[in-house]
Design a protein around this nucleic acid. Structure first.
Lengths: 339, 339
DNA sequence: GGTTATAGCTAAAACGATACAGCAAACTTA
DNA sequence: TAAGTTTGCTGTATCGTTTTAGCTATAACC
């Protein structure tokens, strides 16, 4: 059985002694519907299998306007969080007969437009997008043009668009309460200086947890630029320490790594001198001299869900907006346990 | 300027008052060649821009049999090495006007066949493949059918197929000489029990370096299963220690992480009790209590090169087989320095 | 002035799959 | 038995491009 395709509907039709149209009906499972005889159906299917028929995707797309392909715009596919997401989406989509095209926006709106544009050109049926700062207009335009989209990781409220993301507020809230409950006096947070919902939610989760614990005046947030978290972490951490912070809640994967580097460089003892709670699991977390506690995003579940919502939208023409939130899990190791 | 496309060649033709064929000539840069008048060319281009023309990829592919898309079959896109590779290939391809479709084989030949098949269906122009164990027949068949392919990471010798990979032999050789030069007495290696060229080359690099250093009798290789390196690392490392090994050369990314976990668990001091040299950079390497030395693969260079070789093959119909080897770099940290 | 070049364009047939309209034969029905 | 119904199939237009062959003016030539 060859992997190579070259037989067309016409070839099968010729060999089976029927018309191409009939072959098309049969192979699309519409034989019955089109009153094709039972034995003809069987015969056509047999011939198609013998000839190892593989439909020409371009022709199908051209004719139908559909491609059974999903476009996925990630921030950066080489970032472990998104790499795992990509993998999850690939698998979930394949299970439902869809292929996936990826593109990286690099958290830069003009690049995102480019990628979106290129994916639409390839006539994907829908777009799963991790929207970056400043991409609201693009998203709005896509929605206005009825391009099926589902946002991932970062919802956009007050916009008519579905999304799948972790419940960032709840996860952060829980994480910070854990640090406080663990005995840390002044918990600080390091976050990105962006307005995207996921980041705002994480910040709110932190702030509310602090406030509820009677530590409103201790709220201390260091903001780092998404473009260069490493350099800024090195600058900010000493400042936070000076201000009496004895534990840090780190708002993302990359921020966590940047801060761990800085912490190692400066030579701060974890958790003795400083409690740490990061985001998204990571080999480095486990191998750090004091294993790092973190908020775990259920990536496979998220990936599955986003594909499900997308395909629901595509195939059942669900117009309604669906904002799915999935709960995160707190993974507790040494770094957040005061001793 | 809308991101959405719907204008066709015909629309432009109508608006510009010419035939669709002429528009096609002009927009493909073949205006001159087809003796289209200078001002007609300018006019058509202007109209096309005004209408924000985006060619229909499906129609183009159907007509031409080409898709300006490359299929890339990786081992697992969520593995950092391949995630970075994916990113590099994406960028390099985009720069040349190609899109990329990814698939993961999970180091399992039947899955690889599935992915290859699905990519060919999408009529990619060529395939970049990280071949897995047991995929020789598939590769051979692709070659036989003139599917343009370039292997990545793992060459297959004595097979008529181009490849781009690091010079694994040289890198390993150098790495092991470094460990020996650093004063370690008995350097062991942990490798996968597979026959793929890249692994064999790494093993040969190790063996030859040992032999050249007069340590032929000290050659000690622990093999782990690619399906579960973690469990096996935990079993093998104590055995190697018992046999007097005082430094380990770890043959891959994943093996390195698996071993670091085991080493941390068992409580071995690096580099005091054991020297370590791993493969492929990693955040965990830097953050380990004793930063880990490693063989660095020049991923962006490799990715660029593989796309270059592929496109050369596609566009210049280069039939000749091209086996590119790129030198790796030894990154020396604490873990490989005896004190 | 009649033939041949040449410049500038168009018509139409593909590529492969799909869907609509419709045709012929067999079978009902009154 | 004539009219109508059902069954099983086919012809053909279509999606948006590309490409080959060819058409019509005008210019060049002897």
């Amino acid at each position: 059985m060859s992997i190579i395709k070259k037989t067309s509907l016409k070839d099968i039709a010729a060999k089976a002694g029927v018309s191409p149209a009939l072959v098309s009906f049969v192979l699309n499972g519409k034989g019955r519907e089109h009153r094709v005889g039972e034995q003809t159906i069987k015969h056509v299917i047999k011939v198609a299998e013998e000839m190892n028929y593989q439909p020409n995707v371009a022709a199908k797309s051209l004719r139908s306007g559909k491609s059974r392909a999903l476009g996925v715009v990630l921030s950066d596919i080489s970032n472990p969080f998104f790499a795992q997401t990509a993998r999850g989406i690939e698998d979930a989509a394949a299970k439902r007969g869809y292929t996936v095209l990826f593109g990286s926006s690099d958290e830069y709106a003009p690049k995102m437009d480019l990628v979106v544009s290129s994916l639409l050109n390839r006539s994907v049926d829908g777009l799963i997008i991790v929207p970056c700062e400043g991409s609201e207009d693009t998203i709005r335009e896509l929605v206005r043009n009825d391009v099926p989209i589902v946002l991932f990781d970062r919802p956009m409220r007050d916009m008519n668009v579905s999304s799948v993301s972790m419940n960032n507020y709840a996860a952060s809230h829980k994480a910070v309460l854990h640090l406080i409950g663990s005995g840390f006096k002044k918990v600080g947070m390091i976050a990105y200086d962006i307005e995207l919902a996921h980041m705002q939610d994480r910040v709110r989760g932190y702030s509310d947890a602090m406030e509820e614990s009677g530590k409103k005046s201790d709220i201390t947030i260091g903001y780092v630029k998404i473009s260069d978290p490493y350099k800024m972490a090195r600058k900010i951490i000493p400042r936070l320490i000076d201000s009496g912070v004895d534990a840090l809640f780190l708002a993302t994967n990359t921020i966590s790594l940047a801060c761990l580097h800085a912490i190692k460089e400066i030579g701060i003892k974890i958790p003795g001198q400083m409690g740490i709670l990061g985001f998204d699991g990571n080999d480095a977390f486990n191998l750090f001299y004091s294993p790092i506690s973190y908020v775990e995003q259920p990536i496979p579940t998220l990936a599955n869900k986003v594909v499900e919502v997308m395909i629901e939208k595509l195939e059942n023409r669900m117009a309604l907006v669906n904002n799915v939130q999935i709960e995160g899990k707190l993974v507790i190791r040494d770094s957040s346990l005061r001793r």
